[in-house]
């Protein structure tokens, strides 16, 4: 069981946690990120299109 001080710590700044763990995030180049986003949208739309064979999808 954790005590009150521990609980306060648990609710504290996320920043300290990331520094503690050295979890610096990377970034993709904008062009590559845009391509991946477009691909995931295409997959989503494909799922919607396949769904339309099972039930009518109307806008």
């Amino acid at each position: 069981m954790i005590d009150q001080a521990h609980m306060h710590d648990a609710a504290g700044s996320a920043g300290a946690m990331y520094q503690h763990h050295d979890h610096a995030m990377k970034e993709l180049p904008a062009g590559r990120a845009a391509v991946i986003i477009v691909v995931t949208f295409a997959v989503l739309l494909a799922a919607l299109w396949l769904t339309s064979f099972a039930i009518p999808v109307r806008f």
Binding site: D9, A10, M17, Y18, H20, H23, A24, M25
Partner: peptide, 10 residues
């Protein structure tokens, strides 16, 4: 490392 995972609080 494009998204954070699970971290234990210090």
């Amino acid at each position: 490392r494009l998204k954070h995972g699970c971290m234990t609080l210090p």
